[in-house]
Design a binder for these strands. Structure first.
Lengths: 151, 151
DNA sequence: ATAGATGCAAATATTTTGCCGCCTG
DNA sequence: CAGGCGGCAAAATATTTGCATCTAT
């Protein structure tokens, strides 16, 4: 077998998980998973729906939401809620990772940088919390928007 | 003048900011600011409204939202949006800080622990983003919920 | 006195749900 | 061929807005 990209592997993984959990592999679901995995892409439900329409003109938003919830329950998709923007969905990896969000174009990219384990230890000690997960986002201007702002 | 707590000082600061920005100091607004500042408390708009009702039975949710937006625009309140919960508001400090969120009781507490500056430098270098701010949350079980889960 | 605030209700926006006919397995 | 799924529309939530009235300054 020839080279497969990380995106393709991730796609396959999620499809397998769906099948294993006895969910049906409908064309709509496969298309949604493809969109979620093939691109540095953290779309909203609306965006997914828009991108689906050319291929499946009758797709409904409800189907998009239902699929996203199934994948979220399986732990394959992460929801990112905001107060001033639609919820965005991240299916690229199940490994917790830090997000970088452009405050201008709203692009969200993943990083492979991990938070310092020492920080987590500190938090435990100070608070008594049992730490289970995290959400870490940095806000700023992406390279493109830095360039365009000089117009 | 006698001792004033950090909460009281924070309350006064926000009230001054409102006045300086030529907003009126209505009883409703003062009460909202008091609720926001006097407690380790990151309430939702609904929660604020509920707590306001005993003192101001006719207060409307719209007023709560309007006040929160004014304070957010002034930079005195931080909005925390989620996908599965109402937006929560943090008025306790304007210094960026890490939140600890209990996944069971949804209590949100502040910490005074700062992210490693080295991490931020790393992110800049890897991504080319100009970093302007952050949102860092750790999820887990607060001490109370750890105790109660052993029932 | 008057600009700005409140409170009510209606409007918006987003997400969820119910139901029925259809398709996957 | 049976139960899950997609699509439509209605419902449920959360938040915003318009407007008449009231009030802080």
């Amino acid at each position: 077998m020839t080279h497969r990209s990380a995106d393709e592997r991730r796609y396959t993984t999620i499809v397998e998980r769906l099948k294993d959990a006895d969910h049906r592999l409908t064309p709509q679901r496969l298309a949604i998973i493809e969109l979620l995995t093939h691109a540095d892409y953290h779309p909203s439900a609306q965006q997914l729906h828009q991108q689906l329409l050319p291929r499946f003109p009758s797709t409904s938003l409800a189907t998009v939401y239902k699929t996203l919830h199934i994948l979220t329950d399986l732990g394959e998709v992460l929801e990112l809620g905001f107060s001033d923007d639609d919820t965005r969905y991240d299916a690229r990896t199940t490994v917790p990772h830090i997000h970088l969000i452009c405050v201008q174009c709203r692009r969200i990219i993943d990083t492979d940088i991990q938070p310092d384990p020492h920080l987590i230890e500190q938090l435990k000690q100070h608070s008594g919390y049992r730490i289970l997960g995290h959400r870490i986002e940095f806000y700023g201007l992406c390279p493109d928007c830095q360039d365009n702002s000089g117009t």
